[in-house]
Design a protein around this nucleic acid. Structure first.
Length: 373
DNA sequence: AAAGCGTGGAG
DNA sequence: TCTCCAAGCTT
């Protein structure tokens, strides 16, 4: 039943499967990169690493992983932490819902599992932020359970090795399951990913160094780069955005917190928004600050211009120095609003583009916060 | 099911 | 400069 639904059973002889996985594991044992989450046994740490690695390169996640575990060494520490502290630790890593889900899941683990990561695929999958890949990765790496973990790397390796033009996630999981050595499922999964990251790369794969190139159909066909089939990208819109660095008479800066569930959820930011048709950037700045906070500001010099690409659109952000002319800031969306000294900006998590502006602000002359008399 | 969700490195 | 895409998940 299972077997007949897989279209390549010719290749799935026991001998072939055995040589594939033993060659792969041998290569992994000899050539795996040294990464901070290698040879880690703590299921909590493994979980943190897997969440950080979702859609994120290993070299970007590595320093965050180390810092995060220092700040939150156990499930209990994470469950008891403030989301703000977690977001500060996560600043710059992107996809901030991951931090929120990590926090929620930690609380669920304390509440429902006595503070230990549940040792089953199903229970892991039920945690917020844990999908099919992450559940399989934790189950296999932390608990030695025979579940596949198909990420983008593994998908590329498998579609090339078997020359699959159309492969659903279900097919790939089933295929990987057949090759899983029950003695070392975690190492096998990691080996597949490592091969994809280091040898079987999207462009210019190093087939000459590949431990399984002899059985690889894409290599035999001569053009492995045509796998996996990618779907056409939609072009992303671009917006001009104006933001106000609004100062009060004491030289403090006005910031507001973004709603939890939104883009950049829970981070702090300068007020601002998209430029409208026919509007000047200074007009945008003035209007947005007034709409969001109910105050009238004078819009003065341009502090900086930052180009930034988000996941599904891009912007050019123009930040202007502003001063309050009339009113007291109150968020129209009932969001937290705060006046902060420039020296305290490290206490808040900001999106990357905003952080650039703030850095420019702190560097710029004329920003010495007046000493209180 | 398709869209929303960050950031940075490589080419 | 621009495109691609990375140890995916959620709704």
């Amino acid at each position: 039943m299972l077997r007949s639904s897989v279209p390549f059973r010719m290749d799935l002889t026991h001998a072939h499967i055995d040589s594939f996985r033993s060659a792969l594991l041998r290569w992994f044992d000899a050539h795996q990169r040294a990464l901070p989450w290698r040879h880690v046994a703590d299921p909590y740490a493994i979980w943190v690493s897997e969440v950080m690695l979702q859609q994120t390169r290993t070299d970007q996640a590595a320093p965050y992983y180390t810092r995060f575990l220092e700040a939150f060494p156990t499930v209990f520490a994470l469950a008891a932490a403030d989301l703000d502290a977690i977001l500060r630790c996560w600043e710059g890593l992107g996809y901030y819902a991951r931090a929120r889900h990590l926090h929620q899941a930690a609380q669920a683990i304390v509440r429902d599992h006595g503070g230990r990561l549940p040792a089953s695929y199903e229970a892991l999958r039920a945690l917020p932020g844990v999908g099919p890949y992450t559940a399989g990765a934790i189950a296999s790496i932390a608990f030695g359970l025979p579940h596949p973990a198909i990420d983008g790397n593994a998908r590329r390796v498998l579609t090339r090795y078997f020359a699959l033009h159309e492969a659903t996630d279900r097919h790939l999981r089933r295929l990987a399951s057949r090759h899983l050595p029950h003695a070392r499922p975690g190492d096998f999964n990691q080996a597949l990913m490592e091969l994809g990251a280091v040898i079987c790369t999207p462009a210019a794969p190093a087939c000459g160094k590949c431990p399984v190139h002899e059985g690889c159909k894409a290599h035999a066909e001569g053009n492995p780069e045509r796998y996996p089939t990618r779907k056409a990208r939609k072009k992303v819109p671009h917006y001009d955005v104006a933001a106000g660095a609004v100062f009060d008479s004491a030289g403090r800066l006005l910031i507001q917190r973004r709603p939890r569930e939104a883009l950049l959820g829970g981070l702090w930011e300068l007020p601002g928004g998209k430029r409208r048709q026919g509007e000047s950037l200074r007009e945008t700045c003035q209007r947005e600050v007034q709409e969001e906070l109910g105050i009238v500001v004078s819009v003065n010099e341009l502090i900086d211009r930052v180009r930034h690409a988000y996941s599904h659109f891009r912007i050019t952000l123009y930040a202007f120095r502003c001063h309050v002319v009339a009113g007291t800031p109150v968020s129209a969306q009932q969001l937290p609003v705060r006046w902060v000294a420039l020296s305290d900006l490290a206490d808040y998590a900001f999106p990357r583009a905003n952080r650039r502006i703030l850095d420019a602000l702190v560097q710029a002359p004329g920003n010495i916060t007046p000493r209180k008399p």
